[in-house]
Design a protein around this nucleic acid. Sequence first.
DNA 1: TTGTAGGCGTTATCAG
DNA 2: CTGATAACGCCTACAA
Lengths: 360, 360
Amino acid sequence: MADVAREAGVSVATAGRALGNYGRVRDDLREQVQAAAERLGYSPNAVARSMRSGGTRSIGFVGADISNPYFATAMRGICDVAREQGYEPILANSDDRLEVERAAVSVLLDKQVEGIVVAPTSVTDVAHLERAMELGVPIVLLDRHIGALAADSVVIDNEAAAYEAVAHLLGLGHRRVGLLACVDPAEGPELAARTGTGRLTVRGAARPSIDRIRGYLAAVDDHRATSSAELIQYTPLSDAAQAQRRAEALLTQPQPPTAVFATDNVTTQGLFMAARRRGLAIPADVSLVGFDDLDWTTLVDPPLTVVAQSPLDMGRAAAVRLFERIKGDDRPAERIVLPTELVVRSSTAEHSHGVREHSG
Amino acid sequence: MADVAREAGVSVATAGRALGNYGRVRDDLREQVQAAAERLGYSPNAVARSMRSGGTRSIGFVGADISNPYFATAMRGICDVAREQGYEPILANSDDRLEVERAAVSVLLDKQVEGIVVAPTSVTDVAHLERAMELGVPIVLLDRHIGALAADSVVIDNEAAAYEAVAHLLGLGHRRVGLLACVDPAEGPELAARTGTGRLTVRGAARPSIDRIRGYLAAVDDHRATSSAELIQYTPLSDAAQAQRRAEALLTQPQPPTAVFATDNVTTQGLFMAARRRGLAIPADVSLVGFDDLDWTTLVDPPLTVVAQSPLDMGRAAAVRLFERIKGDDRPAERIVLPTELVVRSSTAEHSHGVREHSG
DNA sequence: TTGTAGGCGTTATCAG
DNA sequence: CTGATAACGCCTACAA
């Protein structure tokens, strides 16, 4: 910039004002400076600017895995909003591992990002997020709410969404509804018999998959349908092959469920593959409800009934709220709940009370 | 850091040496400083560090759309390599628009990224990329090679991959093979009759979709199969609905193709939907070969024969090469060609020479 | 081994 | 309205 100032015959201060669009500069001088800058191919150094002003015009996004369609689409929403605001997002994958998330947040903080959207791995271990907020870097939680943290969150009503899905199956006359849930073994959800009724309840933190189990159990309970641990299978990781094996176990037990609800897109895929591999007709032999309205669910035969959410809108909403915070909004933290929709297609049908046989 | 130095009773220089792991510090002083830093919750300011050292430990990635599985997966590969190197990626979507790409590159340059991976929108308009290289910021091209630019690129052999796919169909006895190609209208590919033979050739820059058309035409030519403009449909944008309409046009003409090749994952989806909507049996009525081995291609009925590439490996390779450049490697620019594989599944079968009828 | 001082490229403050 | 100058936080000569 010193060169530009010299070339234009003004001081660096004036050059700075002309190029940085601050302070007052006479019009002819401004043009002179801009011309000089053009000639010399000057472009501003954002690092120096950040150093001086404190603002980096960067935000961070920490998610489990950007190659997962949910996060990729959410990231798209975040990018769009960031760009409107003149900000750039820095991306970090946590692989759903707490220590990786911690390290990522720490690096982002060192890089002086002005805010962070994070899909948190843990719902209890939040010291790193608290530290960010103490440092004045706002945090917006995506996909998971953390009660213990005074941060905004953008979520869906997991329990209600699951309830609606399962109630749909029960409304079709199904009495034995299976559940294929994707839960981290570290979460350690425990099924426990509810005193008196013999029905089940679940213990564990407020996390999407566990809330979805809660919704399932509540629906089963309300409709006085069969409540049994044998109707529930967990699959530990985002691993479709593993999910498929669990689904097959579910479908091939002596008294198999006549309908199954899967709690996320990976288990949905595993469930669908398992049913097909076992030669079960959908929905004649089993009804299926999946989670997440991915393209492929309309491409398969039959098209799947699913619970739809909008990761694009969730990413957008998270970013919008983040920028409100960056601009100084200090209202109490809010839990922003976006809608879900049960999209009924052809994988669910009335329970036929006739005899059903398959190779299981 | 001044606070830490004071707290530890040393000079800022010593504190800096102790915390930044450079220079020599007596062990007891180092520990003293670290303890003080811990107590005060000090963490280094990466912006100031970058200002001083010139290195930001950031790289940029510019792709058309992160919510597209190809880019999301490539980004994952880039992230992984970056993290190993202690770098963070800054993400920008170009929406396949040149001016947006230009602006993104410019911002990344201002932010002093040390290198950029870009899936370029244009194969001819490269001034912004040249400028980056002149400024000493290495560029690695992903998915598209630009002959006029002395930058590394990570690509697949699009022409050979398409050739193999179409040859597979021709080897099954098909004579009328259709093509559904996703090309930007701005690219203006033109079909022209080759002098003498009456067969077709294509004009246009070296871009994935156009190279895939070249592969198609070469295969058709080599096998003396039917070469006709009526067997080729273009679909301008990454829009599955539009692709489906074009595919239907292709399938419902008076003398429809008995097999069709789609040049990318969106057209593959459109093609599959079109065939199903027209009630065509696959592969009895039409054989289908798609591009990109996405999960859903094995979930549908029948599982699709596709040309598989690995965006994860491509992203990784691009990042690896970028870091070699960042570390000073100045060998001539190289075109890194990753393998593709024709995955034969059940959507392709021998051409039945019997009569074929459908509602078209 | 430790301390002092200067500068990286901006922007903000102040005096002219 | 313009110019000189100081600071942002860190790193690196150089001197002690």
